[in-house]
Design a binder for these strands. Structure first.
Length: 871
RNA sequence: GCCCCGAUGGCGGAACUGGUAGACGCGCCGGACUCAAAAUCCGGUUCUGGCGACAGAGUGUGGGUUCGAUUCCCUCUCGGGGCACCA
């Protein structure tokens, strides 16, 4: 063993040892409990960032811990390799996306290997590989046969920067999730996956996911957005019948059927058929409709947008009173939700109230307020009453509570054939067509004679040509006849291949299945999937709480319904790791662009009055005062990134891993700290020197009779082992497990006993520390384990068990309080009865001083913990 | 607007089931080693008063329950996140 800790030597040696033995190649073994430890695969953007390192370190610690616990562990890795950054890089560098992507994968794979993750690289996959994406295409065709995938023309979200369509889930605050560009509405034919068919199940099953964070389940539930209500048909009045030429009814959906008698107008979306019919005869209305259809997704307006509207001049009839209600076109009604029409109840809906005020529409109060008083809602001094209450002014339905009123009204409507109870979801079907090149081709051929024809299975995969270089104007596939010119599989005539590709979220919706059988050329999934899946632990960023995790749950259900897999939920336990933050420092010179500086280069100046300023020596050798802007995620634009490779080169992978795992619990944000990294390095070096000094004195003898100090050290080691096991195994709190081991290490460092028994106790303590630390800092522990005289590799050791005998003690300390305040400690035998403990507490000198001559009213004894004397 | 989460020393965090608040680390202070510095090692470090023994205060605010509250309940403040004309 070398005296000095040298990560540059021991880390490659440990990695080589694992690689030579294929130590992490996982094989199916029904005899052992399996543990499928999955981290979200990265997009190969170029280089690993700290977020990746944190994600994969958490997964790796768990994987290595479970392996030592006797599980058959699978920890795979792959690449989410299709996507727009590759195309954008291609446009600026004139390199095909395939080349750019594969080079990035190679770089990032090398970086990951240097971090020493226990990954089964034999199962590696990349979604841009035809061996992978052929199964996207295959399953898409099966979905199409079942009506789960379908093509339709509809209004879509168009990202003008990326020149493609986005799913609703990918539009955030009216902007593209990737580009931040304002989204436009366009009408395009595209393919959809019928995720709404599973809305009810996806929602209900959230309750059966106890291993998921509450937060994520709530977010998914909100996104699915189930609401129970009543669909009501308002028959057309003669004017509406004349305008549309149909004897029909205007359908609305409402969660407040109890307020039906308060409806004084109807509001429809600009795209609603009734609005379009009325606009034909009214130029001003037509202009308004056109305006609404074009602009209304403008993000900045959404919150403040005023309730604008115009009357259609048409009317519908109230289903019970027969009153003629005017139909308005209103900009606050969305065509995409419900029926694209609402009944306007100004007295009991804030939006309707606002609209009625503006357009001078009548307000009719039909719900009593909760206090029981009847308060008429009138403009402008009373606002809409949107709470529940008893109905009034509602004919035969008056005097009912909310539920009774809804039930009675729904039943009466159903009897008339004018309505029924219904459930609505906010969730929309998933549009997957993208007008982009670097993605999985949709396996469809458009034939002038036969229409839409699926590519026959035996012709799959439809291979994406890899040598195209996009120029930034539209989809290069649509400009490549060699790709799109083809023969119709049905009639043999000339046909055109679909040039849209699939949303990359399709690729990531099932990759976790494919790791189980990545080499199967004949089937998408096989029996090995049933062995490994569902994943026991999934680890990734909270940013995927809705998109990826919801799509994957849907996709797995589709495969279940096809009999391809036997489970519905792919991820049993989910851990959403916090982001990695760093300080942001900037300098704003007058008239210049703000400059950002890396925290690494910033010096702290502490003035005599305690105030702190920051300054930086610039590359041009000028000292600038910089401002501390607080913490933010590491980013190029803020200049606060830290390159993992640099940390590994300077300190080694173990230091990077230890810092990340010890600084905060995995779900919380992690503040990067240069001093913290140094501290982690220092701890490893302390561990190294403790083992070095110990083994330099020769082999440790077998344990013998122990004195008190030796028993204390041994007890501490076993106690902290028990705590660390619980912290990692149950609580997933790695930071406290690490703290517990540092405590043991500190005690070993202070333990100055070189007797044979002392050396035996120290040996055991160092073995415990090395074993418990080994999932976190595997390289150095690999070397230390050998140094401690072991022949088996530390990765093959079982997780240690605390020795109950070591934990035993004859006496223990009891806390004594007087009136709830800590006043003393007494040492009593562990088996002392309550009376003895009570007597000992009352006899304590400090306790007696505080009690003095006051009467003791009560003494509370908590066995093994404390005594509280109440005076 | 609605929903969720959070607030603990100079800093990151710990206290798991209502029972010693501040584990562990960082930083800082003092000491040892050194010609010196770095590294390393040892000691101290919630605040206030006191040389000290010790005493008092203290987990965002105000209240409640309890022998006892960082922990449970209510109020408010601040911070973070999610959803948002969703009928």
């Amino acid at each position: 063993m070398q005296e000095g800790y040298d990560p540059a030597a021991i880390e490659p040696a440990a990695q080589q040892y694992w690689a030579e033995r294929r130590a992490f190649a996982a094989r199916e073994d029904p005899a052992r409990p399996k543990f499928y430890c999955l981290s979200m695969f990265p997009y190969p953007s170029g280089r690993l960032h700290m977020g990746h390192v944190r994600n994969y370190t958490i997964g790796d610690v768990l994987a290595r811990y479970m392996r030592m616990q006797g599980h058959n562990v699978l920890q795979p890795m792959g690449w989410d390799a299709f996507g727009l950054p590759a195309e954008n890089a291609a446009i600026s560098n004139r390199v095909p996306p395939a080349k750019w992507t594969r080079e990035n994968i190679a770089t990032m794979r090398t970086q990951m290997r240097a971090l020493g993750f226990a990954i089964d690289w034999e199962r590696e996959l990349a979604t841009c590989d035809p061996h992978y994406y052929r199964w996207n295409q295959w399953l898409f065709l099966r979905m199409r046969e079942r009506g789960v995938a379908y093509r339709t023309t509809g209004v879509v979200n168009w990202d003008p920067v990326d020149q493609t369509v986005l799913a609703n889930e990918q539009v955030i605050d009216g902007r593209g999730w990737r580009t931040g560009a304002l989204i436009e509405k366009r009408e395009i034919p595209m393919y959809y996956l019928n995720i709404t068919r599973y809305a009810d199940e996806l929602l209900a099953a959230l309750d059966a996911l106890p291993g998921w964070p509450e937060r994520v389940r709530v977010m998914q539930a909100n996104w699915i957005g189930r609401s129970e209500g009543v669909e009501i048909a308002f028959p057309y009045a003669p004017d509406a019948r004349a305008a549309t030429g149909a004897d029909a009814a205007l359908r609305v959906f409402t969660t407040r059927a109890d307020t039906l008698f308060g409806a004084t107008f109807m509001a429809v979306a600009a795209e609603h058929p009734l609005a379009l019919a009325a606009a034909k005869a009214d130029a001003r209305l037509a202009a308004f409709v056109e305006e609404c259809r074009r602009g209304s997704v403008m993000e900045a307006d959404v919150a403040t947008q005023e309730k604008r509207g115009m009357p259609t001049g048409l009317h519908v009839l109230h289903p019970f009173t027969g009153a003629a209600l005017p139909v308005w076109v209103a900009n606050y009604v969305l065509m995409g939700y419900g029926e694209g029409a609402v009944m306007g109840v100004p007295a009991h809906d804030e939006r309707d109230f606002e609209f009625a005020l503006k357009h001078d529409l009548p307000i009719v109060t039909v719900v009593r307020s909760a206090s029981g008083a009847y308060e008429e809602v009138r403009a402008p001094w009373i606002a809409a009453y949107a709470e529940y209450g008893a109905t009034v002014n509602s004919g035969e339905f008056s005097g009912l509570g909310f539920e009774a009123a809804v039930d009675a009204i729904a039943a009466a409507l159903e009897a008339k054939g004018l309505g029924r109870k219904r459930v609505h979801y906010r969730l929309r079907d998933w549009g997957i067509s993208r007008q982009r090149y670097w993605g999985c081709p949709i396996p469809i051929i458009h034939c002038g004679a036969c229409g839409e024809v699926p590519v026959p299975d035996e012709q799959l995969p439809v291979v994406l040509p890899e040598d195209l270089v996009p120029d930034g104007s539209g989809n290069p596939l649509a400009k490549t006849p060699a790709f799109y010119e083809c023969r119709c599989p049905k009639c043999g005539g000339a046909a055109r291949r679909e040039t849209d590709t699939m949303d990359t979220f399709v690729d990531s919706s099932w990759y976790f299945l494919r790791y189980a059988c990545a080499d199967d050329e004949r089937a998408m999934v096989d029996a090995r999937v049933d062995y490994w899946l569902p994943t026991d632990q999934y680890i990734g960023g909270i940013e995927h709480a809705i998109l990826h995790l919801l799509y994957s749950r849907f996709w797995t259900r589709v495969m279940r319904d096809m009999g391809l897999v036997k489970f519905a939920e792919p991820f049993t336990n989910l851990l959403t790791q916090g982001m990695v933050l760093n300080h942001i420092y900037s300098h704003q010179a007058p008239g210049e662009r703000k400059r950002y500086f890396n925290p690494e280069d910033v010096d702290e100046r502490r003035a005599a009055d305690g105030s702190v300023t920051y300054e930086v020596d610039t590359p041009e050798h000028v000292t600038l005062a910089v401002e501390h802007e607080g913490l933010g995620t590491m980013s190029k634009s803020k200049g606060n990134g830290v390159d993992p490779e640099g940390i590994v080169k300077r300190f080694g992978a173990d230091t990077a891993r230890l810092f990340m795992m010890s600084a905060s619990p995995p779900e919380q944000t992690l503040e990067w700290s240069g001093e913290g990294v140094q501290g982690a390095f220092r701890q490893i070096r302390r561990l190294w020197s403790a083992v070095y000094e110990h083994v330099a004195a020769g082999p440790a003898p077998a344990p013998a009779q122990l004195n008190e100090a030796q028993r204390v050290l041994r007890r501490l080691a076993h106690r902290r082992l028990a705590k660390a096991t619980d912290d990692i195994g149950r609580r997933r709190n790695f930071n406290t497990a690490i703290a517990a081991m540092i405590e043991v290490l500190n005690a070993v460092k202070l333990f100055d006993d070189h007797s044979p028994a002392g050396r035996a106790v120290r040996q055991e303590a160092l073995e415990i520390v090395t074993l418990v630390f080994s999932p976190v800092i595997p390289h150095v522990c690999h070397a230390l384990w050998q140094a401690l005289g072991k022949t088996r590799a530390v990765i093959d050791e079982p997780w240690p068990l605390p020795d109950p005998a070591a934990l035993e003690q004859a006496t223990h300390e009891i806390v004594v309080q007087v009136n709830g305040k800590l006043r003393g400690h007494v040492v009593v035998p562990v088996d002392a009865d309550e009376e003895t403990v009570r007597a000992a507490a009352l006899a304590d000198e400090r306790v007696r001083r505080f009690v003095a001559d006051k009467a003791v009213r009560r003494v509370i004894v908590v066995p093994g913990k404390l005594v509280n004397v109440v005076i």
